[in-house]
Design a protein around this nucleic acid. Structure first.
Length: 283
DNA sequence: CAAAGTCCCTGGGGGC
DNA sequence: TGCCCCCAGGGACTTT
């Protein structure tokens, strides 16, 4: 569920209460999420100062003094929430820990940050800051869609020799990093491209237009604080509201919102995942 | 090699 | 009200 805009929203929320502050107390309440936590994670984190928070694709990278970086992935139900009081920044009453609060950080800023993940598809790891890009989870990732290195020539080349549907192509994190099921559906609809079209059968001009469309959709979603579906929230507990801007996702059977189109949104399954699209205006 | 399928996990919702 | 089944989906892993 959390795709790039949701992860970026969480990162932005955490920044003022974590960056420049110390992890005074760390509670690790189970041995693993998707994978076992790294050795002695609790000891390695306790007492460290957070230098800055970065994002790569759907991963949050928390750089610590001492040369290590905490990598956090939200999986699909991972939820980061801030409690406590940070004067001038934030206030939310600390509550008793709940069932799926797996990791808890108490910071010198006065904030308590909890990582809650019912489905445990999320992950945490500790790595050397210096070689973070070479971490197995990060090494094969494609370019960041909001970076300049993601441009029309790159995308055309990346899709040219692929035979899979464009839906799968844009979902492939080696092609472009950070898009998930929802935003791919939205991007293809806004582009007027059918999700079933093969990557290598899309004209260069059309591929080129995907680049700004991807950027626009993601930028708008970040500005809206991400999308709140099921239990996804911003770190400060507020709801994002980009879900109200969805044109196709979750709208099976509804009328296409493109002016004058009049088509009906359909749901199909591609490589095991739901695709929502308008057969009328996506070709 | 690429592409498609399987699996991990739990809560929530629909059907009966 | 309760129970069963299905669905959500990121991404590593397995199979084709």
């Amino acid at each position: 569920m959390p795709e790039l805009p949701e992860v970026e929203t969480v990162r932005l929320g955490l920044e003022p209460v974590m960056a420049g502050h110390r992890l005074e107390r760390v509670q690790v309440r189970r041995p693993d999420l998707r994978w076992p936590f790294p050795d002695r994670m609790q000891e390695r984190l306790t007492g460290r100062e957070v230098l800055c928070l970065r994002r790569r694709s759907k991963y949050i990278l928390v750089d610590l003094d001492g040369g290590e970086t905490l990598l956090i992935h939200l999986g699909m139900s991972g939820r980061v929430t801030i409690f406590g009081q940070v004067p001038g920044v934030f206030h939310q009453q600390i509550r008793a820990l709940e069932k799926h609060d797996h990791v808890v950080f108490d910071l010198s800023s006065g904030a308590r940050v909890t990582f809650n993940d019912a489905r445990r598809f999320g992950a945490m790891d500790l790595l050397e800051t210096e070689s973070a890009e070479r971490h197995p989870l990060l090494a094969a990732l494609g370019p960041e869609p909001l970076d300049n290195s993601f441009d029309a020539p790159y995308l055309f080349e990346a899709l040219r020799r692929r035979r899979s549907p464009i839906k799968a192509g844009l979902l492939d994190q080696r092609v472009v990093a950070g898009l998930g099921n929802i935003y791919v559906c939205e991007v293809l609809h806004r582009s007027g491209v059918a999700p079933t079209r093969n990557c290598n059968r899309i004209a260069e001009k059309c591929v080129s237009s995907l680049v700004p469309t991807i950027r626009d959709v993601l930028t708008e979603a970040i500005a809206a604080g991400g999308s709140s579906l099921r239990d996804h929230r911003r770190a400060n507990g507020d709801l994002g509201y980009f879900q109200h801007a969805f044109q196709v996702y979750g709208r099976e059977g509804a009328t296409c919102l493109v002016p004058g189109c009049g088509g009906t949104i359909e749901r199909i399954v591609q490589s095991g995942r739901s695709t929502f699209y308008c057969p009328q205006c996506q070709r």
